[in-house]
Design a protein around this nucleic acid. Structure first.
Length: 371
DNA sequence: AAGTATACCAACCGCTTTCTC
DNA sequence: CGAGAAAGCGGTTGGTATACT
């Protein structure tokens, strides 16, 4: 069916653009005295040359006395993400669970803040699943490349020299093609590490994804909808059959403020990653999520998972079991990658130690970039 | 200090849904 | 029941503030 415009704009009298304080005052005064009633007639009665729609929006999004202004609290952020995972872009429904917040405000906040943070963390903000592309790793690979080329104090390597370093024992040796292929291998490793970040973060009590519901959802590669509990007060028709209606509030740890406060990757963080490589001898102490890589099969003694343990136990939901001899990873192609890596490490004992350093660095960076 | 890039958010646009007659 | 009006909603735009070079 056809529709007439909500306002007669043909006359050219309808004002657009930002509202002036005088207009705000007129609108507030009128609504205080008479209520808004019909928005279309309100604008004329209030002496405003505005479209009724514009008046409604101005009132609803800005002038309403119960509007809560100011920055979103970590709790509000958590609620928004939780509800978005359940409801999608139903901003008005989300807003109905956040007293004083408007759908427009929440929508803007999502698009300008939360969305970016989730993307930086490797989470698809639309699906709430881990991202399948690895573009977000580009900073990490750049960091590595920079470390390789500029770390003159480290005998590890130097891309500016034909032999990739002053130390003839370095891992990256040979012709340019070989070097590139080794770098490529390293990049592949980074990708795998990143994808395993979600698995390993489950062991970190400070990381909200460590919550069993969240963790399991990523472990299983399933949509978060299937595991995140419904927010209290959410109507059953809003969360549908995918959630457990018998459970109550989400715990604060589901989406802790840390999750967001540390979500952004910055150059400063990357620099710190690099510094840690220089200063740290025992990376496992600093970052239990990514114990130092060793070429031989890792031994599990404390029940915690390491990246590589899990890569070797693709289907293992618990890490208390010894790794199997068949190397597998979440990525089908990683078997080859780890075979390559092992071969590389076996080439030279000394070069292996430098590769370990690099891998430690990438582990730290991967985890730090994920906070 | 000036120019440019980026972030933020109020407001608009157009489609859908609900209400009224 | 159907048509038209009104309200609701979500995507997008554009102006302004801030950061960066």
């Amino acid at each position: 069916m056809g529709r007439s415009p909500c306002c007669d704009e043909s006359s050219g009298n309808v004002k657009k653009g930002p509202w002036t304080p005088e207009e705000d005052e007129k609108l507030i005064d009128y609504i205080k005295k008479h209520g808004h009633g019909s928005w279309r007639t309100l604008s004329k009665r209030a002496g405003l040359n505005r479209c009724g729609k514009s008046c409604r929006l101005r009132w609803a999004n800005y002038l309403r006395p119960d509007i809560k202004r100011g920055k979103f609290t970590p709790d509000e952020e958590r609620i928004i993400v939780n509800l978005h995972s359940l409801l999608g872009n139903k901003w008005s429904k989300i807003a109905s669970h956040l007293p004083g917040r408007t759908d427009n405000e929440i929508k803007n906040f999502w698009n300008t803040h939360i969305r970016k943070k989730l993307l930086q963390m490797g989470i698809d903000p639309d699906t709430h699943k881990p991202r399948t592309d690895f573009n977000h790793l580009i900073n990490l690979t750049h960091l590595l490349a920079a470390a390789m080329s500029s770390n003159s104090g480290n005998p590890m390597m130097n891309m500016n020299t034909p032999t990739w370093g002053r130390n003839p024992n370095i891992a990256l040796q040979g012709d340019v093609t070989s070097q590139l292929s080794q770098l490529h291998l390293l990049q592949n490793l980074l990708q795998i590490m990143n994808s395993n970040t979600f698995v390993n973060l489950g062991n970190n009590p400070n990381f909200p994804l460590g919550n069993p519901s969240f963790n399991n959802s990523y472990l299983n590669g399933s949509n978060i909808l299937q595991t995140v509990e419904p927010f209290a007060g959410l109507k059953s028709e809003e969360y549908g059959s995918q959630s457990n209606p018998t459970t109550g509030l989400l715990s604060q740890s589901d989406y802790s403020s840390d999750f967001f406060q540390h979500g952004l990757s910055t150059n400063t963080q990357e620099l710190e990653c690099y510094n840690k490589l220089s200063n740290t001898t025992n990376q496992a102490e600093i970052n239990p999520l990514f114990p130092a890589l060793v070429a031989s099969s890792p031994v599990i003694t404390d029940g915690t998972c390491s990246s590589f343990n899990q890569m070797e136990n693709k289907n293992s939901s618990c890490c208390n079991t010894a790794p199997t001899s068949t190397a597998q990873s979440p990525n089908n192609n990683s078997n080859t990658i780890f075979d390559d890596l092992e071969k590389l490490l076996q080439d030279d004992e000394t070069s292996a130690s430098y590769w370990k350093d690099i891998l430690d660095l990438t582990s730290i960076c991967a985890s730090e970039n994920s906070w």
